[in-house]
C-alpha cells in the first residue's frame, strides 16, 4: 500500500470524518429524544451523551480486565481451567528475579525521581533563569521512552578497558583514570542504569508538580518564619515540606504507576537480558515468543493488583475533593 497517499486520507477520515459522525450521531439522538416527554428526556439524555465515551472505555478497559482475570486461571491456549497454576509459576523460579527487578523499579524509581525533583524544584525557585531551567527539564517528558532508550544506549556505551570510550559516562570515568563500567551488562548496575533513563525522561512532570506546589505555599508564612529567625533548611522542613505533602504523594503514586508499566526502556535497551527483565517485558515475551496466554494473563493480573492501592488512594482523594 502506498503510505504517502494513505496518510492524509487516514487523517481526514479520523480527525474530521469520525468526529463529524460522532456529532451527527449526537444530533440524531437529541432529535429522537426531543420527541419524548420532558421527564424521560431528562432521564435518558446523560446516557445518550455518555454512550460513546463509556462504551469505548468498556470495550478497551473494562471488558479486557474481566476476560484477563478469567484467562489467568486457564492454560496456555486459554482453553481449559487449571486453577492457580499460572500464579504458582509467576512466583517461582526465574520469575522471582523478574519480580525482584520490578520491586527495585518500584522503590528506586519513585524515590530517586522525588528526591531529585524536590532539589530541582526548590533550587530553581531561587534563580532568575528558572523558566529556562524548567523548560530544559521538561524537554525529555516530550520524548518517547523508545527514543530515550536509544539516546541513553549511546550514553552508556561501553568498550573494553584500554580502547577509547565512545559512551559519555565511560569517557568521563576515563578522564578521571577509572576503568570503564559495562553499564548495561553488569547485573544490578544495569537495572539501576535503566531506572535512571526513566528518571531522566519523567522528572519534568515531578518538578512541575512540586514547583507549582511550592509556589502555592504562602509567602507570608515563610516570611514570618524568616523573621522568627528560621534558616533555609528549617523553612524547607517545617514550612514547605508539610505543605506540599499532598503533591509529594501525587508524584509518588504517579511514578509508582509508571514503574509498574515500564516496558519500552527495558525492551529497547536490553530486551530483558543480563538480569534486567521486568514483568511488563516478560508479559510481551509470554504473549509472543512463548504464546502462553495463561502466563501472560497471570502476569497482567499481578500488575493490575499492584496498581490497586494507588487506584484506591486516588479514589479516596477524589471523594474528598468532590465533597467540599
Amino acid at each position: 500500500m502506498d503510505i504517502t497517499g494513505l496518510v492524509p486520507l487516514l487523517i481526514v477520515l479520523g480527525a474530521i470524518g469520525i468526529p463529524f459522525l460522532v456529532y451527527l450521531a449526537l444530533g440524531l439522538g437529541e432529535a429522537v429524544l426531543s420527541l419524548c416527554p420532558p421527564g424521560p428526556q431528562r432521564a435518558m439524555r446523560p446516557w445518550l451523551w455518555l454512550l460513546l465515551p463509556l462504551g469505548l472505555v468498556a470495550l478497551i478497559l473494562i471488558y479486557p480486565v474481566i476476560v484477563t482475570v478469567a484467562t489467568s486461571f486457564q492454560d496456555a491456549r486459554a482453553e481449559s481451567w487449571i486453577g492457580a497454576a499460572n500464579y504458582r509459576w509467576a512466583f517461582s523460579g526465574a520469575m522471582l528475579d523478574v519480580i525482584g527487578n520490578n520491586i527495585l523499579w518500584l522503590v528506586i524509581f519513585p524515590v530517586v525521581t522525588l528526591v531529585l525533583a524536590l532539589i530541582a524544584a526548590v533550587l530553581f525557585d531561587k534563580v532568575s533563569y528558572e523558566p529556562l531551567a524548567m523548560t530544559i527539564v521538561i524537554l525529555p517528558t516530550a520524548i518517547s521512552f523508545t527514543a530515550g532508550a536509544v539516546i541513553w544506549t549511546q550514553m552508556y556505551s561501553f568498550q573494553p578497558a584500554g580502547s577509547p570510550q565512545l559512551g559519555t559516562f565511560n569517557a568521563v570515568l576515563q578522564v578521571f583514570g577509572l576503568g570503564p563500567v559495562p553499564w548495561l551488562i553488569q547485573p544490578v548496575v544495569n537495572t539501576l542504569a535503566l531506572i535512571f533513563v526513566a528518571v531522566w525522561l519523567q522528572i519534568g512532570i515531578a518538578v512541575l508538580i512540586l514547583s507549582s506546589a511550592i509556589k502555592n505555599v504562602g509567602t507570608e508564612m515563610i516570611e514570618a518564619a524568616r523573621l522568627d529567625g528560621a534558616g533555609e533548611w528549617r523553612i524547607f522542613f517545617s514550612m514547605i515540606l508539610p505543605n506540599i505533602l499532598p503533591s509529594v504523594l501525587v508524584v509518588l503514586t504517579t511514578m509508582i504507576i509508571a514503574a509498574l508499566k515500564v516496558f519500552d526502556i527495558v525492551y529497547v535497551m536490553t530486551n530483558g537480558n543480563f538480569g534486567t527483565d521486568v514483568i511488563a517485558n516478560r508479559l510481551y515475551y509470554e504473549l509472543f515468543a512463548a504464546n502462553n496466554l495463561g502466563h501472560a494473563s497471570a502476569i497482567a493480573v499481578i500488575l493490575l493488583i499492584s496498581a490497586l492501592p494507588v487506584a484506591l488512594i486516588n479514589i479516596i482523594q477524589f471523594r474528598t475533593e468532590v465533597r467540599p
Binding site: L50, L54, V57, I60, L61, I62, Y63, P64, V65, V67, T68, T71, A78, T253, I257, L260, K261, F263, I279, A280, L283, L287, L293, A296, S297, I299, A300, V301, L303, L304, A307, V310, A311, N314, I315, F318, R319, V322
Partner: peptide, 21 residues
C-alpha cells in the same frame, strides 16, 4: 461512573492485551 473512571486512570495497559489481541 466518576469513581470508576478514577480507578481506571491507573490501569496498566498490559491487562488489556490478551483479550484485545
Amino acid at each position: 461512573i466518576s469513581l470508576l473512571l478514577v480507578a481506571l486512570l491507573v490501569t496498566p495497559p498490559q491487562i488489556t492485551l490478551v483479550p484485545l489481541l
